[in-house]
């Protein structure tokens, strides 16, 4: 016996999905129709996974599951095997979301939880096998999947002082993750989310500030492996991470000041992890770390504001 409404309608999540459509179309254009199958498959598996839980809880499945599945695929390289994407989706939903009690209760962004699992499990596929996008019209629209593989993306090469023209990076004719190729389309979708208030503007704004501040310092003084800040921001998945993953309303901070601090922290950590760790990019771990601190930031800020309202009230101590 199923619940009366099988799918919970979440207009906000629908807007996020709409904002992701151009990125999906661009991904097909770059990498062929296999991307569409990958998206369909993970979305179907994601829905099924969540439905299995929601059936026993007698709850409708949230539309957010499609956002999770799509964002998970967008974080993978185009050469990622189907089975890996499916495994990542199941892991993302079971351990990133349903284990916490379903939509609205998860601490970490589910898509990034799944991606972190894949990243740590299948390092070779996730970091060293990048499909080279098709070039020249009709590009991927007339193909299934690219054969050519490269071992490094522009984001990685920038660290060894390679240089790339701005237009290549900005419009996204470059190997990289499926969704993060085109900063132009990411910014377009991101602005749409902000204008429709589906994402809070404070988070990406603070993240950009944090990233550029840290990365400019690192680059000026030649610290770590920091490349030029603007190119680094455009080359990898930094922008899509800050606009689409970091702004997830469930796992991000909920208070205004919390969002400023959370955003800044995520941006700064992206720069630090990208410049000093063995991993090619730091946005994923930065956001997961930010997610971890978001509830604490909110708690602290609510504490402060309630203390300000009633000065006589004693702040709660301890845990």
């Amino acid at each position: 016996m199923g619940p009366p409404k099988p799918i919970l309608r979440q207009p906000m999540m629908n807007r996020v999905l709409l904002a992701l459509v151009p990125l999906a179309v661009w991904a097909v254009y770059l990498y062929g129709w296999r991307i569409l199958l990958l998206l369909t498959l993970t979305n179907a598996v994601g829905f099924l996974t969540e439905w299995l839980f929601c059936r026993t809880w007698k709850q409708p499945v949230s539309t957010a599951v499609f956002v999770t599945a799509t964002l998970l695929v967008f974080g993978l390289p185009a050469s990622a095997p189907m089975g890996m994407a499916v495994l990542g989706t199941v892991f993302a939903l079971v351990f990133g979301k349903m284990a916490f009690g379903g939509f609205g209760r998860n601490v970490f962004n589910p898509a990034l939880t799944g991606r972190a699992f894949l990243y740590l499990s299948f390092g070779a596929v996730m970091t060293a096998q990048w499909a080279i996008p098709f070039s020249g019209f009709p590009a991927g629209l007339a193909a299934w999947a690219p054969d050519a593989i490269t071992h490094a993306t522009p984001g990685m090469l920038l660290k060894s002082s390679a240089d790339f023209p701005f237009t290549t990076l900005f419009f996204g004719f470059k190997p990289g993750t499926i969704g993060g190729s085109s900063p132009f389309l990411v910014l377009l979708g991101g602005l749409y989310l902000i204008v429709t208030r589906s994402a809070n503007y404070r988070i990406p704004l603070a993240a950009l500030a944090g990233f550029f501040l840290c990365h400019t310092i690192f680059w000026r003084f030649g610290l770590g492996k920091a490349g030029p800040p603007l190119q680094t921001a455009l080359a990898g998945s930094f922008l899509i991470a800050m606009f689409f993953y970091a702004t997830d309303p469930v796992s991000a901070a909920q208070t205004d000041w919390g969002r400023w601090i959370y955003g800044f922290m995520v941006g700064a950590l992206s720069s630090v992890i990208g410049a000093f760790s063995v991993w090619p990019a730091g946005s994923m771990f930065a956001i997961l770390l930010g997610n971890m601190f978001a509830p604490l930031l909110d708690w602290f800020i609510r504490q402060r504001s309630s203390a300000a309202r009633s000065p006589s009230a004693q702040p709660l101590g301890g845990a």
Partner: peptide, 11 residues
Amino acid sequence: WSPWTLLAMAP
């Protein structure tokens, strides 16, 4: 078979 490296690690 590509091993799930994460499972071999403590996490």
